[in-house]
Design a protein around this nucleic acid. Structure first.
Length: 837
RNA sequence: GCGAAAGUGGCGGAAUUUGGUAGACGCGCUGGACUUAGGAUCCAGUCCUUCGCCGGGUGGGGGUUCAAAUCCCCCCUUUCGCACCA
């Protein structure tokens, strides 16, 4: 109906073409002049902090970035329309290895390459008119930013949370640097996929394990985080409760504590095993042939890559050390082995082996013919038979062959055994974590220098706050050599100790880029402060982040680190609450038409610019929103534009043709007024749409927001509305509803309707709560649960009347003929189910 | 292997929060109208089966219920996470 009116250009109505180029240019200019996106230092009204994870500038931005940013943008604009002060900043995670690779390959300095990419990306991004306050832009490789990254390091250092430790680390032979656990994926370097090898080195760590309990416990406070992210973090922290029990090395009497979650199996220990990398091994003084074999075994294990080790899970091997240990519970002597399946970094690097009740120990014992002793029975009537057992019995059960502990069961047994150990001083309760301390030093150039000086007299000395930033010196050669390129710059390395003045050396390493990204969201509240990293009052006014948008790939890395930093800064008085982000939203990735992830390395990057120029920013945005829910992965194809483009150019934009110039009061409700049937219906539809679209913005369901707007416009037939106020009211509210997703379009329509303010000026529409329901309802009639008919009735009709009406439906009557009604279920205004026999 | 999430038309996806008329909205497709023509626009149709009624249908099988896409159990598939954590 409506469409025809437009197509035929009814007399007197001038058809307006949707000229996006003109419209978009016009509003971009106006908004820039108005400084529409300028955020105040302190929010004067309710605040909303929406943040999208800052990108690494590897080239130009692509469709994937574009999708991310328009999602944040729609939320920012929606919140602004709700009348809040919105902080929506942007910046660049600018340190990192690809810049060094580019330096090596193309002879560009990493800074040059990075800043050039930032320039290109920024210019693309600014063309997309995302509502960033660009005056707050940060670039993490600039000294005015990394000065404060170094400041963070110094605070951690003075609180004993940044420390050096020698240990077995993950080493990437390609990038020639160490990696954090979080950067090793399936035994390979996250970035270059080279198999990682173990090296023993002294490195810098942040003591994130001190925060393990809080990081785990506070996950419960994150009500609006996706469950899967919380699960991944919980498992990564890997808290497990058990006991530490002191075995004794027979020869020396030295204590050999081990961690176990199953103290109830203590009487079934038939051997012990030590990790090959464990320093314990050297202290054992293994002799003769045993020494040779143990050494050879250790070397062989160290040669194997992580991938190799992972692929042979299930195949266990090891060698006997010739040494014995004593079980403190029963005084039994047991063999001490070195075994690959024991991890040096977990617990104490040694285990008590209970083959009957642990699958790994079972395999190992079978392989080397070590004794197996059953000390747990599943229940009173079931007995484990050693001869026929094919695997260990690892469930809880009843203790047997365990002296005075016999007949104790499950958790109670564990508790009693642990208590006994505590009383005798041979053990204690213990909680262990899979989480390791965060290794943050890198032997590479393009990162924030570690602000520490190694003094032969004073040891590790912090660079005084007044001397930061420690500026990254200029270097010519970036080829990785296994040590930091900074080590070869004597002007940089040689300094005087700030404490004693004697000749000393700087720490040559740089920090992991994840350190930079652990606090960037704080700098945005006060990006130009030269004296402190951020103003405490500004931070407490804006934080926590209300909506944090990013990819799920950061679940165990960044999203753990930034929570750790936030808690630490709170502890030292810089912040007020526990968690940096109240709500986390996982974005769906954008794949190309073949289902491949768009990335620079895959070479299938599609720039949004071409599309934006041909179809317009708003049409492109709406198309992406409409294609799928924001958290779902999509394979982008320009075909997705067709429907939305038709909707906007043929349906939505032309509704302003029907505007009658009444400039209605948008706070007014029409429900109680004299409206005819059609007017009433469309008014109800409008209010249902307002409610739905509003909910959809809150649930990040932009696709259904657009479809309900399509429905509204489909049902809207201006000539049928005689109330001019209502007609204009509907048009203006529709414009507001689409504004967060299609800003230029909405602002243009708004202005064409004679409005002088901006759509974004706190104009979000409320719905008329009394106008969500039609007076007439359709009630489904079911016979035995199957829909057999439908009746129309006035709202809130009685059950008896519904039944009466249903019976008079011919089709329903047919079914009821000669049958007995056993039961009726009536769901008010919706459905009646008649059960017959 | 362990853990988590998810399987709905030819396609993207609604409805799952609260069990209550499955397939909203859009693409594509089919037919028609207007046109010299149209990949423009409009109208009608489009889960399967059927001329129509009837019947069937949300990965497969079972169950709970007056009523199941939605809740429970088993199986299959896909995706993601963890990969010897004692």
């Amino acid at each position: 109906m409506f469409g025809r009116l437009v197509a035929k250009g009814k007399a007197g109505i001038k058809i307006m073409k949707y000229n996006f180029k003109e419209i978009e240019a016009k509003w971009q200019k106006t908004w820039q002049e108005q400084k529409l996106y300028k955020t105040p230092d302190y929010p004067k009204k309710d605040k909303y902090y929406v943040l999208v994870m800052f990108p690494y500038p590897s080239g130009d931005i692509h469709m994937g970035h574009f999708r991310n940013y328009i999602i944040g943008d729609a939320i920012a604009r929606y919140q602004k329309m709700l009348g809040k002060d919105v902080l929506h900043p942007f910046g660049w995670d600018a340190f990192g290895l690809p810049a060094e690779r580019a330096a090596i390959q193309r002879g560009l300095h990493p800074a040059e390459w990075t800043l050039k990419n930032i320039g290109i990306s920024r210019s693309t991004l600014q063309k997309t008119e995302i509502s960033y306050d660009w005056s707050r832009e940060i670039i993490s490789c600039n000294p005015d930013y990394y000065k404060w990254t170094q400041w963070m390091f110094l605070r951690l250092f003075e609180h004993g949370l940044a420390y050096r430790k020698k240990g077995w680390v993950n080493w990437c032979p390609e990038d020639k640097t160490v990696l954090a656990n979080e950067q090793v994926v399936n035994g390979a370097c996250e970035r270059c996929h080279t198999p990682v090898v173990k090296k023993e080195q002294e490195q810098w760590y942040f003591k994130i394990t001190d925060y393990a309990d809080r990081l785990a416990d506070d996950l419960d406070k994150l009500k609006d985080w996706p469950e899967n992210v919380k699960t991944i973090q919980r498992e990564w922290i890997g808290r497990s409760a058990g006991a530490e029990i002191d075995f004794i090395i027979k020869e020396t009497g030295e204590k050999l504590p081990i961690f176990t979650t199953r103290p109830d199996t203590i009487f079934g220990v038939t051997y012990m095993a030590i990790a090959p990398e464990s320093p314990l091994l050297d202290r054992l003084n293994i002799e003769g042939d045993f020494k040779q074999r143990a050494e050879a075994y250790k070397q062989q294990v160290l040669m194997r890559s992580e991938i190799d080790r992972a692929s042979t899970v299930g195949e266990k091997d090891g060698v006997f050390t010739g040494k014995y240990a004593i079980n403190p519970f029963n005084g039994k002597e047991i063999q001490l082995w070195v075994a690959d399946y024991v991890l040096a970094g977990y617990g104490t690097g040694a285990v008590m082996a209970v083959p009957a009740h642990d699958s790994r120990d079972f395999l190992f014992a079978k392989k080397y013919n070590l004794p197996i002793e059953v000390v747990i029975q599943p229940d009173k009537n079931t007995k484990l038979n050693l001869a026929t057992m094919e695997d260990a019995y690892t469930e809880y059960g009843i203790m047997v062959n365990s002296g005075e502990f016999n007949e104790l069961v499950g958790e109670d047994a564990i508790m009693k055994v642990t208590q006994f150990a505590e009383q005798k001083g041979i053990g204690r309760k213990k909680i262990n974590y899979k989480l390791r301390d965060w290794l943050i030093s890198r032997q590479r150039y393009w990162g924030a220098p570690i602000p520490i000086i190694h003094c032969p007299q004073c040891g590790l000395v912090a660079v005084p706050d007044k001397d930061i930033p420690v500026i990254l010196p200029n270097v010519q050669n970036f080829l990785p050599k296994g040590r930091s390129p900074l080590a070869d710059v004597p002007e940089y390395m040689n300094v005087n100790c700030p404490k004693c003045g004697s000749t000393a050396q700087r720490d040559p390493d740089t920090m992991d880029t994840f350190v930079c990204s652990s606090w960037y969201y704080l700098r945005y509240v006060d990006p130009h402060n030269d004296n402190i990293p951020f103003d405490k009052d500004k931070a407490s006014a804006w934080l926590p982040i209300d909506k944090y948008i990013g990819g799920i790939s950061h679940a165990t890395g960044h999203l753990m680190y930034f929570r750790f930093f936030y808690k630490f800064l709170r502890d030292i008085g810089w912040l007020k609450d526990d968690e940096p982000a109240l709500s986390l939203f996982n974005l769906g990735m954008v794949m190309d038409a073949n289902g491949e992830l768009m990335s620079k390395s895959a070479g299938n990057v599609v720039s949004p610019i071409d599309l934006l120029e041909r179809r317009g920013i708003d049409i492109t945005r709406l198309s992406m929103f409409f294609t799928a829910p924001a958290d779902r992965q999509i394979s982008w194809s320009n075909d997705y534009i067709v429907g939305v483009e038709k909707f906007i150019t043929n349906r939505f934009y032309p509704i302003i043709e029907f505007y009658r110039g009444t400039n209605p009061d948008l706070k007014k409700y029409f429900r109680q007024m004299n409206l005819d049937k059609y007017e009433k219906d469309i008014y109800i539809k409008l209010n249902q749409t307002i409610k739905r679209v509003n909910d959809d913005y809150n649930y990040m369901q932009f696709n259904t927001a657009i479809s309900s707007l399509m429905e509204l416009v489909r049902d809207y037939e201006s000539p049928k509305i005689s109330n001019n106020d209502l007609n204009d009211y509907l048009i203006l509210k529709s414009i507001l509803l689409i504004a967060p997703m299609a800003p230029h379009l909405a602002e243009e329509m708004w202005q064409k309707c004679g409005r002088k303010d901006s759509v974004f000026d706190g104009n979000w529409p409320d719905y008329d709560k009394n106008a969500l329901q039609f007076d007439l309802v359709n009630i489904a009639v079911q016979i035995n649960g199957k829909v057999r008919g439908e009746i129309q009735a006035v709202r809130d009709i009685s059950e008896a009347e519904v039944l009466e009406k249903a019976r008079s439906e011919p089709k329903v009557a047919e079914y009821l003929k000669g049958k007995e009604i056993i039961k009726k279920i009536y769901v008010a205004n919706k459905l009646i189910n008649i059960v017959i026999k």
